[in-house]
Structure formats: C-alpha cells, structure tokens
Design a protein around this nucleic acid. Structure first.
Length: 552
DNA sequence: AAGCCTTTGAAGCGT
DNA sequence: ACGCTTCAAAGGCTT
C-alpha cells in the first residue's frame, strides 16, 4: 500500500496519469500507485524470484557482508543527506504525496556531520546500511533504533539485514529512518517523531496511523510542537548544513556552525534524543557532531581534499535508495543490477508528481551540497572511482550482458517493460542510454516544482523517457546534460500529461514549512511553474520512447 | 580484492 | 551547442 499512496492518495490521484514512461509499455504501472506499488512489488518479487532462479544463484546472499569496509563516516554523511532529502520530500510530499502534514523535517544533518557527501574511501557506506535500517526502524522501531544507536558501525550492521518494509510506507520514508540511525544511540529517532517515541524508553513505539503519518514518523502534531528542523534546513543560503570539509571547505562542521541556529532548532526538535551524545561516531557531546568525526573523515584523505566529497544524489538515486530496500525485501534477488533495473522501471512508472518530488529533493540536495561545498566540483571526483568501462554493452554482444544481469528484472515488470527481455519489447524501451532519459528531466531545466509533476519536462534533452522534470535550480545550464537524445526533444510526451492534469500543486499545499522551503526552493518554484507549463506541452507532444540500451 | 553490472540524472570536458 | 564520459548508490557476481 501505502507506500506511495500516502502520497498517492490524494494527490496521487492526480497522478492518474501515467507518466510518460508509460508509454513504454508499462501502462499499467502506475495505475494507482497505491495499488500498483504493491503490485509492483509483488510482481517484482515474483519476477525477481523467478529470475533469480534463473539467474542463478542469486539467492542467497551468502555473502551478505561483502563489503568490508567500514566507512562509518559516510553513514552519517549519507544520513544527513537523507535527512535533508527527506525534509525536502516532505515538503513536497505534502504536495504530492500526501503526507501532508509533516512539517517537520528532520533535517538533521546535524548529527551527522558526516555528510553524506563526504566519503572517503573508507567511509562510506552506509548507504546501504541506512537503508536497511530505515525500514526496519519503522517496523521495529525500538530495535532499530537501538541498533542504530549502538552505532552501527558499518561493520556491525549487517548490510543485509533483511528489511521488511511496510508496504505502506512511503518510499521516502526510508530516508527518514535512515536518519535515525544517525542519531545515535539511544536516541530516538528524531524524525520518528518524538511523539512516537516512548517517553520512557525513548524508543519509538509504533505509532498508530493516526498518530503519525504513515510514512513519516513525525507526525504533524508533533511537529507543531516542536520547532522545525527545517529551520536549519533552510539554509540560509549561506549556511551549509553539511559539514564542510575539504578542500574548499573550510570548516569541517560548517553545519554546526551554521547551525547554531539550526542546531537549536534541531536540538530542540529532536531533542535530547536526537542529539545524543554520541559517542560513537562523532557526535559531540553537545549533540553536535564532533569534529573528530569530521576530522576523521578528513583525515582519511590527507590530501588537500580531505575527504572525498560525493556527488549529490540525483532524483533517481534518491528514489533508489528509498525503494531499494523494499524491493530487496520483497524479492529474493539481491543483485543490485537487477534491483536497479526494477527500480528503473518503477521510476518510470511513477507519476510525475512522484517523480517531481524526487527531483525536487535532488535539487535541494544539490543546492545544499553546493552550499556546503562551494568549491566542490564533480570533476573532483573524477578518477576516484575505480574505473569503469564502458563499452560494454553496446558493441559487444549485448546478448551476453543482458542475459546475465538483466533478466531477473525483466519479468518483474511485466508490463512495464521488459527491459531485458528481449522479447518484450515495448518494454524494452526503457532504457537508458539510448534513451534520453536525460531529456526527461532535464534537470537542467528547471524544474517545476510542483508543477513538475505536471510536467516532465522533457525538454530538450532526452527524449525519451518520461521525463521528469527536474527541478533544477538552474534553469539555464542545464540542459545540456545528457541529452543525448535530444531528438525528441520535443517529442515526448508525458503520458500523463494529458492526464496529468493539471498539475498538482505542490506548492499549493500548505506546508508548514513552506516558508522555509520557500527559501530553499524559492528559486525553483516560480520557475517550476513556468516550466511546468512548458513542459507540459512538451510532454504531451512526446511520446516517450524508451529504448533500452543498446545492448538489449 | 577489485571491478563489473545496472539504473537515471547531473555535471564536466572536449569538439 | 552538442555529445561523450564519469560519478552518484548498491550488492551479487565475475575476474
């Protein structure tokens, strides 16, 4: 259920329209997200399972823990990010998803200090961890919390904890949860909403629906009581929430600094719990992340760049993070490649509104990231990763490739598309490279925030896909990006477009935080709207064709 | 142990 | 301006 539905619910209704993606074939997909969500999962699961078998082994993840490295810091960093994201999301959700009420966003980057962005080689990690945690948290708050609290070092935590998530949870939810982790031990997840926490134990108890929003732990009411975290979030544009470190960054904890104000907010908000004294990773007794943490991170890379600052996650990545756990939980497959395929399909199946949320979150993240790390450039990370090869698919027999990895997913989305599966075709389209995914969103394009939903803009960029609308803050530049296929530029349409409606009003919703948001968003918003319209048009015109990768 | 694979999006770089 | 490349997450699988 409810996953999306929350959002889906009301607002989603709007969604009816399918996203452009649909074109691809997934028609059904979106249906109602609510429903569909579940279905998808099931489908996926089943398909995955099937596939998995086929694939081979996938099953067990015996090696769950492969990842050796402890990148603790990253966790925090990620978490921070997530918080951020979440916050954003919520705001939007309000619009899109229903979650309306959650005023509070946990943006707690605070604690973490480690920003999500920072990673050192060593650090990182946690993304997965957090994901897992997230879900679990919800389910079992107490436990989860505890775990987190304990400090889950990456090592400690098992990556693979099977998480079962609630179906109904909102996809974004995870983020929140995730954040909790950060908070340390003992600290109840702030976002979980204090109210939910058991006062005595401090452990979050399962809230009734009524108590909290389905997805978000924080309940509105609570929020009201508490000062908004967002406050901090909203960076006053100058203030970074994330720790700034490295090169360019002067202070490791800018966040802290920045936050004096924020911190107050946060702290108050999150309260004691939240700001626990974390011993573990670095939180400072004050509740603030301890510099040490940062320093640690920084240390890792003595170079000028202290830490490796990661790129901000894009909309899809955010989506993946949230949803991965669910998919994994439901499916036997654990391979990321397969899961990602599924996620990619699902992404397409999302309604514009839903995607818009993510775009917006992504936009905010970028914004935040830029604030935190003003001097940072994506180029800084070039060469840091291992290396990828890319030829792949294309030339070489695609078959091979596809065969291996992809299959699993394919079925999963039956209608949606099968990417891999050769057979299906239309499904095949999904993809990517060829596709212009970029187009869709074209991030560059600005995004329409609320409007986004409405339109995806395909803008010029990539044609295919649905296009999401990226909300970029910068309208201008953007576009270039990927564009690969711009051909379509105009072409695609959002499927839903027509359906889409009119736009959903993200903004329209009265968000408590709106104001805060506004600050962040502000740029975009206006912009978005305009964009929307335009996008809208575009979408309609275009069909999205997704083509899968050449390989297939 | 390191890298691949997979997804979409963003950004950088080269032409 | 356009296109290509790299990286972001993630985890099983391959080398």
């Amino acid at each position: 259920m409810p996953q999306l539905n929350g959002g889906g619910g009301d607002e989603l209704g709007a969604n009816d329209e399918l996203i452009s993606f649909k074109d691809e074939g997934e028609q059904e997909e979106k249906i109602s997200e609510n429903v569909s969500a579940e279905r998808d999962l099931d489908d996926v699961k089943s398909s995955l399972v099937n596939e998995s078998e086929n694939n081979s082994s996938s099953s067990d993840s015996e090696q769950n823990e492969r990842r050796p490295q402890p990148r603790a810091d990253l966790e925090s960093y990620e978490k921070a990010r997530e918080y951020f994201t979440e916050a954003l999301r919520r705001q939007q959700d309000g619009g899109f998803f229903k979650s309306p009420h959650y005023p509070g966003y946990p943006f707690l980057m605070i604690p973490d200090l480690t920003n999500p962005y920072l990673s050192s080689g060593a650090l990182s990690p946690s993304a997965r961890t957090y994901l897992q945690m997230k879900w679990p948290l919800l389910d079992v708050p107490g436990t989860a919390v505890l775990r987190d609290s304990r400090s889950p070092t990456p090592g400690q935590l098992s990556n693979k904890v099977p998480v079962v998530q609630h179906a109904h949870m909102h996809p974004l939810t995870p983020l929140i949860t995730y954040s909790n982790e950060h908070f340390s031990p003992g600290t109840p997840p702030a976002h979980l909403s204090p109210e939910i926490l058991d006062p005595k134990t401090g452990i979050p108890r399962t809230p009734h629906p009524s108590e909290l929003s389905p997805y978000y732990p924080l309940s509105p009411g609570a929020m009201g009581q508490i000062p908004h975290p967002l406050g901090w979030l909203v960076p006053q544009q100058g203030q970074p929430m994330y720790p700034i470190t490295a090169g360019g960054f002067r202070h490791p904890y800018p966040a802290l600094a920045m936050n004096a104000s924020m911190s107050s907010l946060v702290s108050s908000h999150f309260s004691p719990h939240i700001v626990p004294h974390h011993h573990h990773h670095g939180l400072h007794q004050t509740g603030i992340p301890h510099p040490a943490i940062v320093s640690a991170a920084i240390k890792q890379e003595p170079n000028g760049e202290l830490t490796h600052i990661k790129k901000p996650l894009n909309a899809f990545m955010l989506y993946m993070k949230e949803m991965r756990a669910k998919v994994v939980a439901e499916c036997t497959l654990k391979e990321s490649a397969a899961i990602n395929q599924i996620l990619g399909r699902r992404w397409h199946s999302l309604s514009r509104e839903e995607q818009a949320k993510y775009y917006e979150l992504a936009r905010k993240e970028r914004q935040l990231h830029s604030q935190l790390y003003p001097g940072w450039s994506a180029r800084d990370n070039y060469g840091k990763r291992k290396k990828r090869k890319r030829d792949n698919k294309t030339d070489s027999t695609p078959e091979d490739f596809s065969a291996r990895h992809k299959k699993p997913c394919v079925q999963y989305l039956p209608q949606e598309k099968m990417i891999d599966s050769p057979a299906s075709s239309h499904g095949s389209m999904l993809d990517s490279p060829a596709t212009p995914s970029a187009a869709l969103a074209s991030p560059a394009a600005p995004a329409p925030t609320h409007s986004e939903q409405a339109q995806p803009l395909s803008l010029t960029t990539k044609p295919d896909r649905h296009h999401h609308f990226p909300l970029l803050s910068k309208p201008s530049s953007s576009s270039s990006s990927s564009s690969s296929s711009s051909a379509s530029s105009s072409s695609y349409q959002p499927t839903s477009a027509s359906g889409r409606q009119s736009t959903p009003p993200l903004l329209s919703r009265p968000l408590p935080l709106a104001s805060l948001h506004a600050s962040l968003l502000s740029p975009p918003s206006p912009f978005h709207q305009a964009a929307l319209h335009s996008h809208h048009a575009l979408f309609q015109s275009q069909p999205l064709s997704l083509v899968t990768k050449s390989a297939d």
